[in-house]
Nucleic acid binder design. Structure first.
Lengths: 148, 148
DNA sequence: CTCGGTGCAAATGCTTTGCAATGTC
DNA sequence: GACATTGCAAAGCATTTGCACCGAG
């Protein structure tokens, strides 16, 4: 299997799980692959609708589930009610630092975190799948704006 | 200030922020302090209602916000839509490992994680507040039950 | 006395579901 | 042709809000 092409990867995943290959699913994958940073389901739906697509919200949600299941995207909840998504395919594993004041989300990489997570999984007899680290703090700009 | 008594701590917090001291708030704190492990807002509300309390859902949500703000409880989102809470007051800082299959949540302590989070905050010029690490995997029982 | 807090019920907002029509296998 | 998937609208569910009343400061 070609692991550099998300379409091929997704096709393979769908077939392996006896899901059907539909144009809507690939139209959504295509749009997702052009998203920068984080996005939510409705954002994606509206982007597609504005671009003239006929896909429904239900299909967007359904497909995001499949894309999450196979690891092409990751789903996060940053202490909010809505789910945010991000492309994982071909991306380096990273973590997030969230500003409590303005809500900005930045990324950072620390290989040690995953190593520790794997150690912890092992010692607790869990089959490791993935790990999510969120750091909450106040960004430099918000610290400077305290008086404002 | 006495830092071993949650009621005193909460009173102090409320006064400092010019919030009122109401019996409902302390009734909720009392119930929370008797909760083991994780609980959600509605669970807490129903527990109180069954025990004959007259507090409303709105007040439970309102008070959980205040308890979270002052750090007596922590609010988590384990990839679900509802928020789960846990007592922080007097508890050691820990992380969570969640079974993707049965949803079980276990805790573990690794002091290194917070140290790295502080390092990362510093290097990104964030004022550190706290960190949340979730590890997702499959627990031993679920691994054994694959065929079932 | 003032105005923040409360209870209730209705509203909100994200997500899921029911159902008939469609299109993949 | 069977049945998974779709679009649409309605339902679901956790949480928030509006409003009249109450009670803490």
């Amino acid at each position: 299997m070609n692991t550099t092409d998300p379409k091929e990867f997704f096709t393979h995943y769908l077939k392996r799980n006896k899901y059907r290959i539909t144009p809507e699913r690939f139209e959504i994958l295509e749009t997702v692959m052009h998203c920068d940073g984080h996005f939510d389901a409705d954002e994606l739906y509206l982007r597609m609708k504005n671009a003239g697509s006929k896909v429904s919200r239900a299909t967007v949600y359904n497909t995001l589930d499949k894309l999450t299941e196979c690891g092409i995207v990751a789903r996060y909840r940053f202490g909010e009610r809505l789910a945010r998504y991000e492309i994982m395919f071909g991306n380096e594993h990273h973590h997030h630092i969230i500003c409590r004041s303005c809500g900005k989300i930045e990324e950072f990489v620390d290989k040690r975190v995953e190593r520790f997570a794997r150690e912890a999984s092992l010692s607790m007899h869990y089959g490791f799948e993935n790990t999510v680290l969120h750091i909450y703090g106040v960004c430099r700009e918000c610290q400077l704006n305290v008086g404002a």
